[in-house]
Amino acid sequence: MATGGRRGAAAAPLLVAVAALLLGAAGHLYPGEVCPGMDIRNNLTRLHELENCSVIEGHLQILLMFKTRPEDFRDLSFPKLIMITDYLLLFRVYGLESLKDLFPNLTVIRGSRLFFNYALVIFEMVHLKELGLYNLMNITRGSVRIEKNNELCYLATIDWSRILDSVEDNYIVLNKDDNEECGDICPGTAKGKTNCPATVINGQFVERCWTHSHCQKVCPTICKSHGCTAEGLCCHSECLGNCSQPDDPTKCVACRNFYLDGRCVETCPPPYYHFQDWRCVNFSFCQDLHHKCKNSRRQGCHQYVIHNNKCIPECPSGYTMNSSNLLCTPCLGPCPKVCHLLEGEKTIDSVTSAQELRGCTVINGSLIINIRGGNNLAAELEANLGLIEEISGYLKIRRSYALVSLSFFRKLRLIRGETLEIGNYSFYALDNQNLRQLWDWSKHNLTITQGKLFFHYNPKLCLSEIHKMEEVSGTKGRQERNDIALKTNGDQASCENELLKFSYIRTSFDKI
């Protein structure tokens, strides 16, 4: 039985969820670079991206490699990797027998973001014989899940209580170790020597080791999670996991709180800001991140802002960003909400898709409305799209047979046209069989910064309504002859009103 693990408890099935942008060198404390989270699957090609990484700022997932063999891993080693800020997950990587050479110096898994409450997941690794993470000293947050690894031993010899604050939620089941077939031998045991430290858990006094050649490092209890030197002297209180010299914040392997210019500090002093819960960055760093993602459509890219001495992905609820200094300031009234469309555009074809934009005031991208039916549609669209004030790209209304009016965009005031449909149009209306009105132009103002209007096959939309939009939106004169079809717009509506004058002759039985 794995020490510190839980057996036999019912657990939810383990679901495996399925960018080499360097964020800056980590400095003297770390020998390499800070790398983003990685999802490495199918083959070993991307694994080489770990070569210079000291910190993975995010998670590391290595999974679904069915053609790899043990010899493929023999020359692979990433000794610079010290810390993973989120979680480490391995799933069905064939041929991998140990992690001792792959990650010989991995010391800390912070667990800032977890995989279903777990910071370390080893699942269905069919050839893994031992973990071998002999320098792993601290899992700051989260638990361990090690399950269905039929060859995995050296679990009962690990004292997880020396690595985690609590072992109650560890789930370590259905491994070879369960069948008591392992016969784990710690260093020196074969020669009758006791080389590794022994600890007591559940009444068992057991030597602690990761492999037959690597003991588990056990520091004096007084050192807590700070770690200790090879001689057993406690590291500085700002260290986490390990250090090369005692009581020196510049000799830590990793930091308990924050890293700044080669030393570990309790908090980031001005003019620095907390970033990702582990390091200090200056304003320029946060500003660069903001600008890199301002026009990016890459998933996970955030326009970072500053709030409460932190550089964070977005302002919290009730705050909006001051564009001059990136500071989050309290909103006066309802907060603006910028919604970034991942692929640059979004099609609204149902109430469900409209709900995804609920509360958005600025759309960074283009909207395509293609709704053919739905219950209580006008009210639903207004509830979900009615706060949109600005669209950076274009607005396209296409084959939306259920629409009679666009009044559900009740606050839309600006279409920038930074991206144009077919390279020309910022407003595009095609084949809307029941569209009769755009907006009530006596109450609604709309500016279209650039781009043209396109109207074709809107049989109940009168040309007068379209011409009014040209005047109000500032697009009059931009359109070419064929942009607004004269014969297919309003051709099934009563669009022309003329005053009919009647004269009559009164007659009676005795007068003409």
Rank of each mutant, 00 (worst) to 15 (best):
Y30L: 13
E33Y: 00
C35W: 00
G37S: 08
M38P: 01
N42C: 12
H48L: 13
H48V: 12
E49Q: 03
E49C: 05
E51C: 15
C53I: 01
C53D: 00
V55D: 00
H59R: 09
Q61R: 02
Q61Y: 03
M65A: 13
F66Q: 04
L76M: 06
L76E: 01
P79Q: 11
P79S: 07
L81C: 00
I82T: 06
M83K: 03
T85M: 04
T85A: 04
Y87G: 01
L88Q: 00
L89V: 00
L90T: 07
L90W: 03
L90F: 09
Y94C: 12
E97G: 10
S98A: 10
K100T: 09
D101K: 06
D101N: 07
L102F: 13
L106N: 02
R110L: 09
G111T: 00
G111N: 00
S112Y: 04
F116I: 13
A119P: 01
A119H: 00
V121T: 06
V121L: 03
K129M: 11
G132V: 01
N135T: 10
T140W: 03
S143V: 06
S143K: 12
V144M: 11
K148I: 01
N149V: 03
N150G: 12
N150P: 13
E151F: 04
Y154H: 13
L155C: 12
L155I: 10
R162L: 09
L164V: 15
L164I: 08
D169A: 06
V173R: 11
N175A: 12
N175V: 02
K176P: 10
D178I: 05
C182I: 06
I185G: 14
I185V: 14
T199H: 14
H214Q: 12
Q216K: 03
V218W: 06
C219L: 03
C223K: 02
K224Q: 08
K224Y: 15
K224H: 04
K224S: 09
S225E: 03
G227R: 03
C228L: 03
C228N: 05
T229G: 03
L233P: 04
H236W: 01
H236S: 13
E238L: 04
L240Q: 06
G241M: 02
N242V: 10
N242Y: 09
N242L: 11
S244I: 13
D248E: 05
P249T: 11
T250D: 04
T250E: 11
V253Y: 15
C255Q: 01
C255M: 01
N257W: 03
Y259R: 03
L260Q: 01
D261K: 11
G262L: 03
R263E: 14
C264R: 00
Y273G: 02
Y273S: 06
F275S: 03
D277W: 05
W278H: 10
W278E: 04
F285T: 06
C286S: 05
H290D: 03
C293Y: 02
N295E: 06
R297W: 08
C301N: 02
H302R: 06
I306A: 08
I306C: 06
H307V: 08
H307P: 01
N309H: 10
N309S: 09
N309Q: 06
K310C: 08
P316S: 02
N322L: 14
S323D: 15
S324T: 07
T329L: 08
P330F: 12
G333C: 07
C335M: 03
